[in-house]
Simulated scan of single mutants.
Amino acid sequence: MNEEEFLALRLQHKPEKVQALFIADGLPVNNRYFYLKNSSMFRAVKDAYTQVFGDFKDNDEFLKFFKEMGGYFESLTILPIKYLPPKEQAKAREEGIEPLAKKLAEMQPRLIVISLKTIEKYAREAIQLSGITSVEHIAVTPFPVKSMVNVNNCINGIVTALKAVEWEE
């Protein structure tokens, strides 16, 4: 998939009202993507939602529930930056702050989960720049790769974040 296809797929899954916004770093580089239901982040988020809201019969049912509950993924950058040199990654992240702030102002989420500690300062700057007051809780989790510690810390961080917000039944 190319960048336009990833962005189109993400927009297909955008809820009318975003309640829980997950902020990722950039678009995928390896066709592993939350909305393709084949990424470590998809599995971690599904595990967390299962702990909080109960079991799902399959990945499609979970993705439908995620959208119905106002869950949505947005990227700090609209580029796949994983393999860029560190200075170029930082530049792309810096350039992503203002566009993300505008999206945050539109969405007015209640919960924000920043899903990579490396992007926390950029995401928080976007949140501040957006001027939104809708946020009840902000969580920062490691990306669920490289070790089971990261995976478990990501899942536990999302569970804690989901429990910090009052969800309507």
Rank of each mutant, 00 (worst) to 15 (best):
L36S: 10
V135A: 10
A123P: 11
P15K: 03
L116D: 15
A90R: 13
N38E: 08
K102R: 11
I112G: 03
E166G: 03
K82Q: 11
E120K: 10
N38T: 04
E98I: 04
P15L: 02
E68I: 00
A48T: 01
I138H: 10
V165S: 14
A123G: 04
I138L: 11
F56W: 14
G131I: 02
F73N: 02
T118E: 15
D55E: 15
E94N: 09
E3H: 12
E106I: 00
L79Y: 14
K103Y: 06
E3N: 13
R43G: 07
K117N: 07
V151A: 08
N152W: 07
F65K: 07
A105Q: 10
D25H: 08
G70Q: 06
W167A: 01
V135R: 09
K17H: 12
C154W: 03
N150Y: 15
P28Y: 05
L36K: 14
Y83I: 00
Y83N: 11
Y72N: 03
Q89L: 10
A123R: 02
L129H: 07
I114W: 10
F22E: 02
D25S: 11
A90Y: 10
K117T: 03
P142H: 06
I138S: 05
N31E: 09
Q108N: 14
A101E: 02
L27T: 09
G131S: 04
V45K: 04
T50I: 00
I158T: 08
S75M: 09
L111F: 14
N152M: 04
R43V: 01
W167I: 00
I23C: 06
F56I: 02
A92L: 03
L7N: 12
V18E: 04
V145D: 13
A164S: 15
L79N: 13
I158D: 12
K14M: 07
L36Y: 15
L111R: 09
S115Y: 07
L100M: 02
I119P: 11
K14P: 06
A105G: 03
E94G: 04
E88K: 09
G96K: 03
V113D: 08
A92M: 04
F53L: 04
N59Y: 11
T77K: 03
V151N: 04
L63W: 06
I78Y: 13
S75P: 08
